[in-house]
């Protein structure tokens, strides 16, 4: 299993006047972890759901914005 977002703590200098963002994140979508799509990958149960997600396969879906991040 992989995570769709990674987090890192940037260096914050005592002379950075903007209110620092202490933890930053970036997206690591599923295609980074799939060399070649295997055959027979499970599909969404309904066509409507697949259309909504933009892909037939839940394993390829990448949420954005980060659902774990509040206030987005």
């Amino acid at each position: 299993m992989f995570t769709q977002f990674k987090y890192w703590k940037p260096y914050i200098s005592p002379f950075d006047p903007c209110e620092p963002i202490r933890i930053k994140s970036y997206s690591t979508p599923p295609q980074l972890y799939i060399q070649f799509q295997p055959p027979g990958l499970p599909q969404y149960p309904t066509a409507k759901q697949a259309l909504h997600c933009g892909t037939l396969w839940p394993d390829l879906f990448s949420p954005y914005p980060n659902p774990e991040k509040k206030g987005n």
């Binding site: 995570t3 987090y7 690591t28 980074l32």
Partner: peptide
């Protein structure tokens, strides 16, 4: 570098 950024590091949730 891409592989390094793909790696699972601190799995702790920050939010």
């Amino acid at each position: 570098a891409v592989e390094i950024l793909k790696e699972e590091r601190d799995r702790k949730k920050f939010f």
